[in-house]
């Protein structure tokens, strides 16, 4: 509780101001408005969850923050500077894993450091630390095809952390996992986040998951996307799915969100 209080006074690390994003419709012509006048302030070291229904452009928001896509209008700043393309200071854990299948677990985790030209000994040591942190000790020399989905997602997390970014973007990282693994990974991600304090922006379409992991939840409206509501989650960690306060919050948010088919 105490820590959560202190975190809140800290400054904003990323700001989105009046961000619009349109895609050209290739077949019919015209444009498709995905994001419209989006304003978000991300605080340093918080665990922020972007929560919204199915296809509402959450991934697009993350891609813009990461720098893979440019907003059509508005600005996105990180530490006061405009974001211009991807940068190692913003790591990402991808929904469809996107780990390099031709590299071993070790090769994947140390990839960012290798690109920076860090010498082999240093980067091996560091990568080993993060491999141990995500619980993959002993699997360093396995290829991705040889390990399970949950383990692959751990590789993705270790890979993002090993590059020591200031912000880590997680795009429905547990979407493809089975329910049991998912619960386990939710605890794991909190454990890792507490061990390695960094700002996390976490996208999900699962209410329980959102309430379980978040410091703060921003509920996203369906297309065109912008902020619908915002919740501070002050429940103590570790949280419980059946805690009355948890259920109350869950119901409250459920009433706000757009339900779509």
């Amino acid at each position: 509780m105490q820590m959560e209080q202190t975190r809140k006074i800290e400054k904003n690390i990323i700001t989105l101001e009046h961000v619009d994003k349109e895609f050209e419709k290739v077949k019919e012509g015209g444009v498709f408005e995905v994001v419209k006048d989006l304003n978000i302030k991300v605080r340093e070291n918080e665990f922020l969850v972007l929560f919204g229904p199915g296809q509402c452009g959450k991934t697009t928001i993350l891609n813009m923050i990461a720098g893979f896509e440019e907003p059509t209008a508005g600005t996105i700043r990180m530490k006061g500077e405009k974001i211009n393309g991807p940068d190692p200071s913003r790591g990402m854990v991808f929904q469809n894993l996107a780990i390099f299948p031709w590299l071993t677990v070790m090769g994947n985790v140390e990839y960012g450091l290798r690109m920076k030209g860090v010498d082999k000994k240093t980067r091996r040591e560091k990568a080993q630390y993060y491999i141990d942190l995500v619980g993959l000790k002993g699997f360093e020399n396995h290829y991705p095809i040889q390990i399970s989905g949950g383990m692959k997602q751990r590789v993705g997390i270790a890979r993002a952390y090993c590059n020591e970014p200031d912000v880590i973007l997680m795009d429905e990282p547990f979407g493809a996992l089975d329910a049991q693994t998912r619960y386990l990974m939710q605890d794991e991600i909190i454990r890792i986040w507490e061990a390695e304090k960094r700002t996390v922006i976490f996208v999900t379409n699962n209410i329980e998951e959102a309430v379980y992991v978040a410091d703060r939840i921003i509920v996203i409206r369906n297309c065109p996307t912008n902020v619908k509501a915002e919740y501070e989650i002050n429940l103590p960690r570790p949280r419980s799915y059946i805690d009355p306060d948890f259920l109350k919050l869950r119901r409250e948010i459920n009433n706000v969100v757009d339900h779509t088919l």
Partner: peptide, 24 residues
């Protein structure tokens, strides 16, 4: 997404060709 992952990990254009495009 593999390309994006590599870019976010800080690989430059030359590294992209040799460490991503070729093995992929």
């Amino acid at each position: 997404t593999i390309v994006n992952a590599a870019r976010m990990l800080g690989c430059n254009d030359r590294q992209m060709f040799f460490t991503i495009v070729i093995p992929a």
